[in-house]
């Protein structure tokens, strides 16, 4: 494997966003790119990352390899990179370590680190293609704000999408709270757009603790996409450049 990222910051942000959810995971490398899939310890949430080969230049992966990496170790090394550094990941065919090289485009500094790899026996889940009842695209910062606000009142949020809009509501010991967003197009500032595509109304309840955790990815993309269907996990997607993505799936809470 030899994969060169124009900005080390991208990988730094991705790992930073998921490191509190998952600890040890395999980075599966093949000629289409670098993928990661991992569940959190309680098996409620699933992280799925895809960094497509096109996100790197150049990208070369001659043989499929799984790099088992402890994310807190990876984060320690990524913190040694400046945000603007160029990052090159390298690994042999049957690697014991992954090699990270940081190059400054402005100076002649070159830093090199090796991280020891781990043997990780990870369950791989098949995620079915889903036609979602509701797909909401909104500013990532807005979603983060709503989750942070509502977690002050309750541990769960009900997300209800109708033709009127999308309503985030919660109830807790001190009282209730709700935030409703309607579809909104801002020609001047398209980054503030809220788009709700609905084939049928849907209402589901989720644990806010996980949603707040997912929102650590807000720095990766201006927009977040929420996809909901009855009785299936919520998909929270942050789209990255070159069709790469960071997706989170969260199992709903279902009342008896």
């Amino acid at each position: 494997l030899e994969a060169r990222l124009e900005q080390a910051n991208l990988l730094k942000k991705v790992v930073d966003a998921i490191k509190d959810l998952v600890q040890d995971c395999n980075f599966d490398c093949n000629d289409s790119g670098i993928a990661l899939q991992a569940m959190d310890n309680s098996h409620v949430a699933l992280v799925s990352m895809m960094l497509k080969a096109e996100s790197f230049s150049p990208f070369r992966c001659d043989r499929n390899i799984a790099l088992g990496i402890n994310l807190s170790s990876l984060m320690k090394v990524l913190r040694c990179a400046q945000n603007e550094d160029i990052l090159t990941l390298k690994a042999d065919d049957a690697p014991d370590v992954v090699n990270l090289v940081f190059e400054s485009s402005e100076s002649d500094r070159l830093s090199e680190y090796d991280i020891k790899l781990m043997d990780i026996d990870q369950e791989h889940l098949g995620i079915p293609e889903t036609e979602y009842s509701a797909t909401i695209s909104m500013p990532a910062a807005e979603f983060q704000r709503i989750c942070r606000d509502l977690i002050a009142l309750s541990e769960s949020v009900a997300i209800e999408a109708t033709k009127e809009g999308v309503k985030f509501s919660c109830s807790g010991d001190i009282g209730n709270g709700a935030v409703t967003l309607r579809s909104h197009t801002n020609v001047e500032k398209p980054e503030l757009n809220v788009d709700i595509a609905l084939s049928e109304p849907v209402a589901l309840t989720f644990s806010l603790k996980y949603l707040v955790n997912f929102c650590k990815a807000s720095g990766l993309s201006g927009t977040v996409k929420l996809c909901l269907s009855s009785e299936v996990p919520l998909l929270v997607e942050y789209t990255l450049a070159s069709n790469s993505y960071l997706r989170f799936y969260l199992a709903p809470k279902i009342g008896d």
Binding site: M39, H43, V44, A45, L46, E123, H124, L125, G126, I127, P128, T205, S207, V232, P233, Y249, L250, A251, P252, K253, I254, G255, D256
Partner: peptide, 14 residues
């Protein structure tokens, strides 16, 4: 957590 589903009950093991 009452009513919290596991993600494994929705996605099949590959």
């Amino acid at each position: 957590q009452s009513g919290q589903k596991s993600i494994k009950s929705f996605f099949q093991k590959r």
